[in-house]
Nucleic acid binder design. Sequence first.
RNA 1: GGCCCGUUCGUCUAGGGGUUAGGACGCCAGGUUUUCAUCCUGGUAGCAGCGGUUCGAAUCCGCUACGGGCUACCA
Length: 509
Amino acid sequence: MIMERKVRVRFAPSPTGPLHMGGVRTALFNYLFAKKHGGDFLLRIEDTDQNRFVPGAEAYIIEALKWCGLVPDEGVGFGGDLGPYRQSERKPMYRKYADSLIENGSAYYAFDTAEELDQLRKEFEVRREVFSYDLHTRDGLKNSLTLSAKEVEEKLQSGQHYVIRFKMPVNRDIVEEDLIRGRVSFNTNQLDDKVLFKSDGMPTYHLANVVDDHLMNITHVIRGEEWLPSMPLHILLYESLGISENRPQFSHLPLILKPEGKGKLSKRDGDKMGFPVFPLLWKDPETGDISRGYREDGYFPEAFINMLALLGWSPGTEQEFFSMDELIEVFDLAHVVKSGARFDPAKAKWFNRHYLQQKTPAELAGLFFPFLNEKGISTDLDHLEQIVGMIQDRCEFVKDLWEQGHYFFLAPESYDEKIIQKKWKPDTNEKLQSIAELFETITEWNAEAIKESFSTFMTEKEWGFGVVMVPIRLALVGSSSGPDLFAIFEMIGKEETIGRIRKACLVIQ
RNA sequence: GGCCCGUUCGUCUAGGGGUUAGGACGCCAGGUUUUCAUCCUGGUAGCAGCGGUUCGAAUCCGCUACGGGCUACCA
């Protein structure tokens, strides 16, 4: 009986900047797959390119994953027995793999300088061709395939810079069953001799990723579609290294596309259309540029995750709201969509609205409280809870509570001009003054009692409800929207209510 | 240019030989309401095109078109 290996997947970002929401989704799908199968989710930092290192990016990635609830079982910042989990710290481990490839003829030394290769690319371009270091060109270049053993030895000894390239085999069909896409095939004649080991002594992504996945017992590689073209190289690498027996299975996720226009979602789209592209706010350490984040924009992590889960995956049912546990329960690679998905910022907001409505007024009051403090407004939580209960269903974000309820704390400083034009008649002042007088006489100040006295009064005067309600609302709120007016009267109190009505009469003539 | 992947309402998607092609967001209309929003109800709208296989194709195959990705000593 063959025992199934424990599922182990990894999220392997490069710390070159803030984590894109597409990256978060990749992490999410990896996490869901791992948890669904009782496996491990690892975080490995792929920092083999020292030139692209950005300070703070790694900490950002870790914080973002934590905020999203995608906590790794192993990895940088999370412990684990198969570390280090930062590739720069694994540098000494890769050399012997590269050497073994040279030894068995799967790879070779190449001494061509970057300048020489650039020059070649330009020459090819003039002829409208594309230079590729491959079976057609490698025999005419400076490498251990064309140079004598002696020359190679001399160059190596003299410390001349070199890289190690994979020698792509001739005319082999590499066919792989991608767990999302099904059968995908490539012919090696179309593939080039990728650099595996750089002249600075670091492996490239291709070598490091294969070696590390092997050493870390990774069973499934779930990554973005941009990696699909290098899958045959990776498969060949496992084979040449003699470690293909337990090699992982591959799955390539579709990309997240711009809401409008062509191409994949980028930071610019967010700036242009006013939505975040990153989970957390990011300040570029070099330029100082700020990129907004879902967290700082007021999204709940559960809304962000729910939205992301349904972007490129569907449960096959009509359920649309999922907790993380529910996602784990039903997640399935087979239901990942193959085509790229356009991101819809309106739907992200809609998800946030849903999760906000799910919260109790007490919970929301707790979240709103610090926000008010920042504005220098002090109040007590019980009072706040009552207010929140009145305006919660009008909000998508916690910050909307202010937009929808500022008048509970501050008297309006101005009144909507359009509403004045439309609803403030010549006799409105007089009517409001008499209503203020009526309010003076009310001793039991609650919505129900006020409404009763008010109704009686209106009937006596034979005034239409609609004629005075809007002006009063304008006086109290500053605009024509909001919850039940009598509830507002009760909430802001008798003195304040009367004061605001009288003030409006003074200001609006 | 070459290679690879993809294509169902405007958007996210279900559906995998026989369905009135389902849901959600958005949008529109109606209802509720003292206002506005929420909410409720309803509506709008789709199988890229052409060939083939088949009694029958959104579904299988091919071609075309379109979209996307890759094509660095970046990941």
